[in-house]
């Protein structure tokens, strides 16, 4: 059964919390806000993408559109689209 969107977002938040060593930063990042504008560095984004591959069992493709990487919401949407 596919994960719910809320569950996927929560798991992505968990990965971000691991990268930042706790929840304090992640709690300031709403699901829809641009990760870049929220202060997520390019290094952290790359690390998050790698962690998502392990967490959700897929590999990123080079042709993923930039919009898919913008926010927790869009990242979750990408994961769910792969599960359909």
């Amino acid at each position: 059964m596919p994960d719910s969107e809320a569950a996927v977002r929560k798991r992505i938040r968990g990965l971000l919390a691991q990268l930042y060593g706790g929840d304090s930063f992640v709690e300031t990042v709403s699901d829809g806000i641009s990760l870049r504008q929220a202060g997520v560095s390019s290094h952290a984004l790359v690390a998050l993408l790698v962690a998502m591959e392990d967490e959700f069992g897929f590999e990123w493709d080079d042709d993923v559109r930039p919009e898919a990487l913008r926010s927790i919401e869009s990242l979750a949407g990408h994961v769910l689209s792969l599960q359909e």
């Binding site: 990760l35 870049r36 390019s42 290094h43 984004l45 790359v46 993408l49 790698v50 591959e53 590999e59 990123w60 493709d61 080079d62 993923v64 930039p66 990487l69």
Partner: peptide
């Protein structure tokens, strides 16, 4: 070495 996550992640940085 940096693979697709690196390619995608640094695209975000480059775009900014």
């Amino acid at each position: 070495a940096i693979g697709t996550p690196g390619f995608l992640g640094f695209r975000e940085a480059f775009s900014a």
